[in-house]
Amino acid sequence: MNAPLSPRALASSALAEPVLAVAGLAKDFPGRKVLGGLDFALAPGQATALIGANGSGKSTLLRCLVRLIEPSAGEIRMLGRDVRALPPRLLRRFRAEVGIVWQRHNLVPRLSALSNVIHGVQARMSGPRVWVQSLAPAAVRDEAMECLVRVGLADRALVRVDSLSGGQQQRVAIARMLMQRPAFILADEPDASLDPQTGEEVMSLLLGLVRQEGLSLLVISHRLEHTLRFSDRILGLADGQIALDLATRDANAASLRQFFDHADAA
């Protein structure tokens, strides 16, 4: 059922520098230890699923990786950068290279799909010309259209996002993320607010970016079948530690069940 690893991923997993290497990553919230010193590394060109029960710290880990939450301790090396050492200005520029897909699409309501996708270019450009599609330079509009084509929504470019369906909105959010030209994608339950069918489409769209364009993906997954179908590797989080780390082809539903707490694991 799993698509095979791309040749690039196989070749690079042993040789190339990892896209992400984490050592001793810890996060304490007042009165609560969420991450207790994690160590792991991700090879480029792979899709990694991060699983764990509710409240196990998956979202916290993802946010810590780009310092949307400041980690308490540990080292993070991502895309060749020592993330924790970046001063604010460079941190902003670094974040631009990491595409994040949220559980909620977080699009700007009342604006068109195209305007929302163009917002992704704010990763490297600023000024009123990238606020709405009607002001955007031709090259930016063309690239945004290209991103909408990649998520299959070219025909909805000028439709207001609040009139699109949930799945379409999430695809617009992915197009906006692609507009950043990211090398690494973080996704926090991108299929959570979608029905199973639509959620599957979104997951396979993300996996397609890994397979066809060689991007790297770390995706928090809360559906057992999606985890098995749309990843190369699975990391399981429990008690603030990496409690499971295996290739998806070696995984079976029974061994993963403890990391899920809803009924669809049955």
């Binding site: 780009v66 949307l68 902003r92 520029r93 974040r95 631009a96 994040i100 949220w102 909620r104 977080n106 699009l107 700007v108 309501p109 009342r110 604006l111 305007s115 917002h119 992704g120 704010q122 990763a123 600023s126 000024g127 009123p128 990238v130 606020w131 709405v132 959010a173 906006r176 950043q180």
Partner: peptide
């Protein structure tokens, strides 16, 4: 809704970019 602003901030948008592309359109 702070979501769109946070998402744009995570992209690396400037403060003015947040205001122009997320806050003002939503509040218009």
């Amino acid at each position: 809704d702070p979501g769109p602003q946070d998402a744009l901030r995570a992209i690396g948008a400037s403060r003015l970019g947040l205001i122009g592309s997320a806050v003002i359109p939503a509040c218009l």
